[in-house]
């Protein structure tokens, strides 16, 4: 029994808008997912640092999904904004401002600003050029951070940053309990915002843009504005994700700007499924848990099995793991003869 069903039943030929509204309602699996995240805290107390990194990375993947899955903007350099966020939080803490929540806000704002600057360029290119431009911005920023080692600490990373206890009460402990719950709450709140955006009229316009992007060589001014706006929002969320990781690790280094991270997050998102909100979370969980477990089994050759997993996901699913889940759910429904005809 899904929440979407009544809408379908009552309207045999649902209009796009009705369908859209039905999608916007909370599905049965959504609370389940977040309960699962809370359960992780109690059931896997020794996996909290991993859980924290997965949550922050999932938020990062979600930010990429907003531009890729909804806006059709492929980026091979999204960690630019993740890194800006991480360094914002890190540098604030380094120079005396150690309150974590305000650091998070500052990181989001600065990353949004960086996104706004980049957006002028981004909306003018597409296809491979878009990949290269995003990658190029990423590479240039990485080199700049490397060169400016007096500020950033370069490859050694920012030394001696420490954030003050959360709300003045909760110390970032070694077991990672504070970091996990803090990250979970922030990620959930940002997710609510992203969900709201996706199911707003603006979100609908974005999907239109994604389709248009494929057909038209250049976008009209209105769509360009949409593209720029979602890019800025996405950059802000990526910045918050970066700051979250910086605060939970209490360390920032160049790897937060490394292209490998851009590639990883793109991979995770495609593994999970694009344009379905939870794809970023499922992708991050599947990819990072697999990597953690495989690396424990064999630290030297785990890349092989990750690679194999990617190949299998491509060959046997339509839109990542979430796509596969949706397909099998639809298949089960058809078997029972209750679902709508394909």
């Amino acid at each position: 029994m899904t929440a979407a069903e009544p809408a379908r039943d009552s309207a045999p030929a649902p209009s796009a808008v009705a369908d859209f509204r039905a999608q916007a309602r909370w599905q049965w699996y959504e609370p389940l997912f977040w309960l699962g995240a809370i359960a992780w805290y109690f059931l896997l107390p020794t996996y909290l640092p991993l859980g924290t990194q997965i949550l922050a990375t999932a938020l990062f993947a979600l930010s990429l999904d907003l531009i890729l899955g909804y806006g059709g903007i492929v980026s091979l350099g999204h960690t630019t904004f993740f890194g800006v966020g991480a360094y914002t939080a890190g540098l604030l803490a380094r120079y005396g401002w150690q309150e974590p929540i305000s650091c998070l806000v500052a990181a989001g704002l600065l990353a949004a600003f960086a996104g706004w600057i980049c957006s002028f360029v981004i909306v003018r290119v597409q296809g491979i050029a878009l990949l290269l431009v995003t990658l190029g911005i990423n590479l240039v920023l990485y080199e700049a951070a490397n060169k400016a080692y007096k500020i950033t600490g370069g490859a050694d990373g920012l030394q001696g940053i420490e954030f003050s206890p959360l709300l003045g009460m909760f110390h970032f402990d070694m077991l990672g309990r504070t970091a996990y719950l803090y990250t979970l709450i922030v990620v959930f709140l940002v997710f609510l915002v992203a969900r709201r955006i996706v199911y707003s009229p603006f979100g609908l316009a974005l999907r239109g843009m994604r389709e248009n992007w494929k057909r038209m060589p250049a976008l009209g001014a209105g769509l360009r504005r949409h593209g720029a706006l979602i890019f800025v929002l996405s950059a802000a969320i990526a910045g918050i994700a970066g700051a979250l990781l910086a605060e939970s690790v209490q360390f920032v280094a160049l790897d937060s700007l490394a292209v490998q991270r851009s590639v990883d997050v793109l991979t995770m998102l495609i593994v999970g499924g694009t344009g379905v909100l939870y794809g970023s979370f499922v992708g991050a969980v599947v990819y990072m848990v697999a990597r953690d477990q495989l690396a424990d089994l064999n630290p030297a050759y785990w890349y092989f099995w990750i690679g194999l997993m990617l190949v299998l996901v491509v060959l046997f699913t339509r839109n990542g793991v979430v796509g596969a889940l949706a397909d099998s759910a639809a298949w089960v429904q058809r078997k029972r003869g209750r679902g709508p005809a394909p």
Binding site: L266, I270, Y301, Y303, F304, G307, M309, V311, V313, V314
Partner: peptide
Amino acid sequence: ELDQVLLTVGIIYMSIA
């Protein structure tokens, strides 16, 4: 395109290992 990217990234990882 994205599936092509994922497939070939998978092959890169396998070839590296």
